[in-house]
Design a protein around this nucleic acid. Sequence first.
DNA 1: TGCAAACATTTTGGCGCCAATTCTGAAACC
DNA 2: GGTTTCAGAATTGGCGCCAAAATGTTTGCA
Lengths: 237, 237
Amino acid sequence: MPYEGCGLHNRGVVIFMTSKTQISRGTLLEAMAKDIQAGVFTPGTWLKQIDLENRYGATRMEVRRALDQLSSKRLVRHVPNRGYHVHALDDRQADEIREVRIVLETAAADTIVQNATAADRQELRALAQRFSDLVLTGTLLEQYEANVAFHIRLLKLCSNQELVNLALDIRGRGPSAPATQWKTRARIEQSGREHFLMIEAIEAGDAPALRSILTAHIRQSAEKELARIQPPQRRRG
Amino acid sequence: MPYEGCGLHNRGVVIFMTSKTQISRGTLLEAMAKDIQAGVFTPGTWLKQIDLENRYGATRMEVRRALDQLSSKRLVRHVPNRGYHVHALDDRQADEIREVRIVLETAAADTIVQNATAADRQELRALAQRFSDLVLTGTLLEQYEANVAFHIRLLKLCSNQELVNLALDIRGRGPSAPATQWKTRARIEQSGREHFLMIEAIEAGDAPALRSILTAHIRQSAEKELARIQPPQRRRG
DNA sequence: TGCAAACATTTTGGCGCCAATTCTGAAACC
DNA sequence: GGTTTCAGAATTGGCGCCAAAATGTTTGCA
């Protein structure tokens, strides 16, 4: 019974890079956060310091500092004398974080509508179009990244920089691994359509509409009835 | 021209403790955060590692780790080869953080109203009463702490634990030093009355009323017209 | 064969030392 | 008199080494 806090247990499974890409100090944190969010390290994986040194071409001290910062951001958890592992959210936490995302991003809606210029809307349309295109032709990771790009561009129209930073942090903590993001093809296409609906709401100056689209959009992937209904598996019967 | 980012410049002014209180590793962060929020270290103060070692009876490594975590929380800023200093918020950031606080705490209002039991309301009344009592008899620090205690107790009635954690984090980042919290005696007394109004709203099950009281309550100390009107000081002439 | 204890390996975490950089204060210079 | 320069002091920050803890394996025993 090695660890009680998480279900998965792929210990020490770390993907190496062929070439040690020298990563400067400030961006190591971002690189690791990105890899966690992109699903390179699945929830529950133990992050060994030596492997991280090799993967990112960083010193032990830089790795340790980045791990500490990641556990400040609640992306990884630290167990003394055991190390750091990717934080695995349970259903309740995932729901709660989703609701907080809704709170923050809808709070940003008012100033987004106020501040968006025609040029901004044009950029948003391009990003929304890129996402829709990738639904057919792209990989899951590309779709995920295009989606993130759209939402970040949208958020940055908000006047309140602190709100933007907080929303981005919370976004990074959510269960956003590409593999679990969208349940069905239909849901992806619906997401793509909603992006355009947001732009229309912005163009119409209709902040309440933007809020309601955002709310529905963020709640999208909350279709986990199947997992709930299944009874707990019995060991012998 | 030592540092461009903050107005104050009391470098190296650190208060020592007579006895080295041995502080365990997990709480060093909290102790430092509390001291910053309580105004022991004023905004802009440089936090020298040696002084912190002496003050908290910690090793250099623990101090460094705590400083890194504090800069993750945006309570201090790190300048390479210069050290760490308490983050000084400008007016804009203070306003923005206040608005984010309003967003988060009003978002918690619904479940607070739903979850509050009679016992909870009783505890809240006791804390509100303690604050009101301290307006006459207590020190500024005691008033500040009683106010924090009331707000924390209120927040913890919210079902969404992630929302609570985030609200507490943001609360810790705001300009909450006791000295700058309440402008006038009248404002303190008004704050005390608003605490009771919140409890009444909870008792009446009136979440919208709670939200509106909270909004006004948090915007309380935003009376800084005087500082704005003064022209920039001229050097000669 | 199943279980448990002891050993070997791996990994984390902390401590100390020293180089690089910055700050201070005083002397020199304009 | 005020500014600049320069050496000494102080501080930060990084690197390497080693102990403590945990994990995995093998051996011993019933």
